[in-house]
Write a protein that binds this DNA or RNA. Structure first.
Lengths: 199, 199, 199, 199
DNA sequence: TATGAATGAGTGTTCATTCAT
DNA sequence: GATGAATGAACACTCATTCAT
């Protein structure tokens, strides 16, 4: 049903369901979930207010659909990581992808991260997100294991945390974050750290 | 009810303005800004709904006042850091404080972090928060400079990011995050890394 | 599904119009007019929502058609009554039929009675219902005249009222109404009363 | 808080709560529960839409308050009945009251009776109404017992049913029901019947 | 200064009805 | 005829804000 070609590529919307999803993503990211009304979404999507409910049972359901589509993205990313058999290369690639997404899809990221923190909204969805994080951590853990890390789980958590923290700061800082430099720095530190661990 | 020392100490509320602020902090943290009504705040603070408007011009203004009071906390923390002259010790202390706050004041942290990401709410406050982050980064940067780091600004950013990322994951993960282990791990890595950088 | 004889027999639905009417009757009876949506009716009838409008101009029109079909039932009942020439026997039979319908077709009765009371819905239909009641009263009046009642019109009204009142109470009371006993009692009183009147 | 002087007397509304209740009673009676919007009630009561919710938690709660106030009326009526010690007289009085209410408070009656039949609305309230009916029946039962009726419970039910049935017909018939004549007739029959039973 | 009743714009959601296919 | 996606008016309800007391 959905056709995606590249992680960061999203095709032009074809049907109303996608139009609505896109509009909602945009608006939730910019104004937040609670500050976005169904009316706004409908107007932005170019459909009638009632039509939203032909595609999504409720505002909550719309939100969940949104999240699920994001989860798929992470899923794909993780799949890519598993294909390579050089741990260091893979880590580099993942790190690069992470920074690329950060630069190209800032709004979506912001939305997802805000979501993880927003209280009350989504007990129903939290499980999904937690599962996704757990999977990611596992992937990193395997990579660090391959690199000979003594505490691969903690190393993975820490590495993941650094990336997440950078994301967070980018989102809050917005304009003037030295993102490119940070990427280079992290990759360098990563390598040094790896080498040391590999010894 | 809670008895804490130093940084996290909050004096017993004296006047209605503070009562309101406290109630709002608690409720915003638990239910989010949009899910908290003035009525709830007033009831929790033990004042009449109308009285809230004698102390704060609007719900927005209340939020901003609340953020400002939080900023002071960070300010104090940074002051403490400057008093020590052993960079490595200071880093350890700051890291410890960070983790302690994470364990004891999770709700407030969650609230502040969510705030940084929540769009739309606080263009008016963003500047203040950015300034605070900049100051923190500067403090860390000075510490890394003292440690002989070649790229102290990036190192500070990265370190700060790691802590922030861990905070984020704790908040999202909630129950089963290996927080204590992470603290030990981060401190260990920090030391090793420092030693290497010091060479 | 149900197999009944005579008056209460409903033929198997042949065309969509009847399917829709049947579905609507069932749903209106159970959930009320305002709580039943066209979608529900369509789904229950096994047709598309739009198709309902090929058979009935509007929800109102559907309701009116439904009422008219119910009126016919009363019509048939009254016809039966006229065929007998023993007034007392006829009264007994009618009373029995009344109680039988009450036991077997409670939902439909409830619906019709509610309809008579529900304001606003059916100014358009009220005339028809009034006419039906008038006819029924006339039938009873003739019977009481035959029995020698001095005020046959009032007697008919009173008798009819008793039956209606019992119906009403049954519907409201629902589970624990002593319906069978009431039938026996009414028939007994009726006989005594008749005998007295006949003197 | 409430001051009533006579069963059929309702004082001019003083506060908004009563204004709203009155408006709601009027509109529910005329248009039905589902066909009456909060906006209409507010407008008729001369208050803002939101104000309705300062007095009643929900539309349902408003309905229930309405019913409860009606229950009180019945309660008072029953109290009156218990004060007399002449069963026949009491029956007469109650019957008279019943007919008077029917003439003077038709809208309220209509509303209550419609309510008893309307499906889905008020499972929460049904218990109250059933209890009220049970009490009334008990009062009548005692009266018939005092009159020496052999089956006082059934006699009470039947008598009550007749009154209810008359009410029902009045409501449906509306304009041209011979109410006064029916009253005389019922009282006469009642007396005869009583005499016979008393023998 | 303190109060809370009053307000009304705004929300998510439903659903009778239309109409292009 | 048959369909069901699309529509938008209407609904119950919320809540930030005001203001007379």
């Amino acid at each position: 049903m959905k056709e995606k070609q590249d992680i960061t590529t999203i095709k032009a919307p074809k049907n109303k369901g996608e139009q609505i999803l896109d509009a909602a993503t945009e608006l939730f990211a910019v104004n937040g979930f609670h500050n976005t009304s169904i009316s706004q979404i409908a107007k932005k999507a170019g459909v009638a207010k009632g039509s939203v409910y032909n595609y999504f049972e409720s505002k909550q359901a719309l939100l969940e659909a949104l999240i699920m589509s994001g989860v798929e993205l992470g899923e794909q990313m993780m799949q890519m990581a598993k294909k390579s058999d050089n741990a260091r290369e893979t880590l580099k690639i993942l790190t690069n992808i992470h920074f690329d997404l950060l630069q190209n899809d800032l709004k979506h990221w912001k939305f997802y991260m805000a979501l993880m923190l927003q209280p009350g909204i989504l007990e129903s969805v939290k499980g999904i997100l937690k599962e996704r994080v757990a999977k990611s951590v596992k992937v990193y853990e395997d990579l660090f294991t391959a690199l000979g890390s003594e505490q691969p789980h903690l190393a993975a958590r820490a590495f993941f945390a650094t990336l997440d923290g950078i994301s967070l700061q980018v989102m809050a800082d917005l304009e003037d974050y030295p993102l490119e430099e940070m990427k280079v720095y992290v990759l360098k530190i990563l390598l040094d750290f790896d080498k040391e661990e590999e010894k």
